[in-house]
Design a protein around this nucleic acid. Structure first.
Lengths: 347, 347
DNA sequence: CTGAAAGCGCTTACAG
DNA sequence: CTGAAAGCGCTTACAG
């Protein structure tokens, strides 16, 4: 935290009597077989001594690379996304990259506006959780090839693209199997009415898990705008009152679970005796809830690592080849009191 | 989301047959009394038409201004800080600024490292929640005058500096008065062992509120590292077991409250009958908790607005004068079931 | 009222 | 193995 005056390549050149060309090559590790070891050593030592750091703007202006990644989350203040964001940052900084965040609020106009804003500001890569009905825009973005495009949490089946997602299908299966093994006979699925791949994959996982177990799926799909609202809660309560046989629920997102738990409280349902509950995404709220809520948690650190690792890899490979980075990570089942104990649980 | 090739001032100059000097003046609104209205109109129309956006790196290289603000939070994945972050972003983008986030984890070495990192990358302003024992470093940073320094959540009494904070003293008083009016006779304070101004101000507010009410303050101050740990919970439980007369608690942070609520659950304390509870900071967890928890919530949108507004103002005023921006915002008391009802509550 | 030119700090093709 | 020079896209002091 010293430094008064920034030192430039020119200063080093003057000081050491070596051309700026040579110094630049050394700084950029392009000196091998070009510059003598002696000169390399001399320059590196001096750089170390004065703590030289290249001017990013000059580099950007010259190369067109900004060393900046944009993370467009659905909502950066959502605990899941902010946890991912925090982990990513750390790794990005270590690799000399900055991250800029923004929230789409699942609004496609807003997302389009943000993308165009950041394209103007020049960024190297976008990590995006696309909003509803955004496939065309994403495709166009990928086709332009101006930036590396990495999708997160959601993918499209029609296009070949980079993504990091949860294994939603098997996650849902694990969660439902937990409900089954704890004695539930009629399991309902509460999800989002959405074209998000994660939502359809979770629903499919649910259906697959119950197919030999109960006569037919029972599901409620709420529109995105109602997830946190009273209107959504009323729809959920109606659903519960209608399907009286339901004795287990899988919530597809933590938002749905929170509103659903409020609803179950209003209906005075006893968890887990009348109704067992499990949800996607862990939050400390679920641990503290009475009773504590079982979850299928997403591996946040692993996701963040893959997201950045993949993006940096693609950034390096850019133009080299049409490399594709795809990762599907398994979730973790955390059993708590909202599922009845079974003889298999030792606790 | 079109655009193939970025258009530069040079392109405009060639197209319109006007010098780049003139165009630059018009873009930067320095055209008044220098350039004819006719030319201004012509250039502005063309810029509008082709959607010209200046190259930020070139501007930065030339002016030294990066249009970047760093927000160093204690933990950017904490709901309070991530909520503030999200609000700030929106306003910053509208003003042509980017925000970069990082987390100090309340670690002073890490904070110092981050500051030096971002100084090298050149940023215009720092919005900082300083970690413990960081006053000297902050003072040095302010003295350097390389960037605008805005403190958030914590301030120092010894130095004159910019800050946006909660009215902690009166917030704590309001919270304690709520406990008093709901019938508590022995109110304890659970806080942080810390040199943060917010912590001492809250403790003072508590002391001031109870001074005519109970014989002496009863407080537990935990070290930062134990806030979320089992060790901290055990200390808390011992404290509760020791002070059997305590029938009301004010928690100084949401983290302390969460761990404390876990402890009270383990001790099978009935809230609010045996023990009423109120905490600083609202989280949806507190609303969903059984019983729901009363809080002294911080005005997140107003804080974010003041933070950015103030920072931009100082950025504009830089060098002009030694302007100082200080804002103390009032908290909101939200009464829920963790305080007993009084005849004054209509519900 | 308008423009030619220097220079911010880099990178890299080219020459030697 | 090393260096002189052009140029990335701006801003602004200076000249007219």
């Amino acid at each position: 935290m010293k430094k008064k005056q920034r030192v430039s390549i020119k200063d080093i050149s003057k000081e050491l009597g070596i051309s700026i060309t040579t110094i630049s090559f050394i700084i950029n590790k392009k000196a091998k077989n070009r510059i003598s070891d002696e000169v390399i050593k001399k320059v590196e030592d001096y750089i170390e001594k004065v703590g030289y750091e290249p001017n990013t703007s000059a580099q950007t202006l010259r190369t067109g690379k900004t060393k900046t990644i944009v993370f467009m989350a659905e909502d950066i203040s959502d605990p899941f996304f902010s946890a991912v964001a925090k982990e990513m940052e750390e790794i990005a900084y270590k690799n000399g990259y900055k991250i800029i965040y923004c929230s789409t609020e699942n609004n496609k106009d807003r997302a389009a506006e943000l993308i165009s804003l950041f394209q103007n500001r020049q960024v190297d890569a976008f990590i995006i959780t696309p909003p509803e009905n955004f496939e065309k825009e994403i495709q166009e973005l990928i086709t332009q090839k101006n930036e590396v495009i990495m999708l997160f949490d959601r993918r499209y089946t029609s296009t070949e693209h980079n993504y990091v997602i949860l294994d939603n299908f098997n996650g849902a299966k694990m969660a439902v199997n937990k409900l089954i093994s704890s004695g539930c006979k009629n399991i309902a699925y509460v999800g989002l009415k959405s074209d998000f791949s994660c939502m359809s994959e979770r629903l499919e996982g649910y259906k697959d898990a119950i197919k030999d177990h109960q006569s037919q799926p029972i599901s409620l799909l709420l529109p995105f705008k109602d997830v946190k609202t009273k209107a959504g809660r009323i729809q959920f309560e109606k659903f519960i009152n209608k399907h009286t046989a339901v004795d287990g629920i899988l919530f597809a997102t933590n938002g749905l679970a929170i509103n659903g738990l409020k609803g179950l409280k209003e209906l005075h349902k006893n968890i887990p005796d009348e109704l067992a509950v499990i949800t996607f995404d862990d939050r400390d709220l679920f641990e503290l809830h009475t009773p504590s809520i079982s979850v299928l948690s997403q591996p946040v650190p692993a996701m963040a690592t893959e997201l950045i690792k993949g993006t940096l890899e693609l950034l390096r490979a850019k133009n080299d080849k049409n490399e594709i980075f795809q990762k599907i990570l398994p979730g973790n089942l955390i059993t708590r009191d909202s599922c009845k104990l079974t003889i298999y649980d030792k606790k």
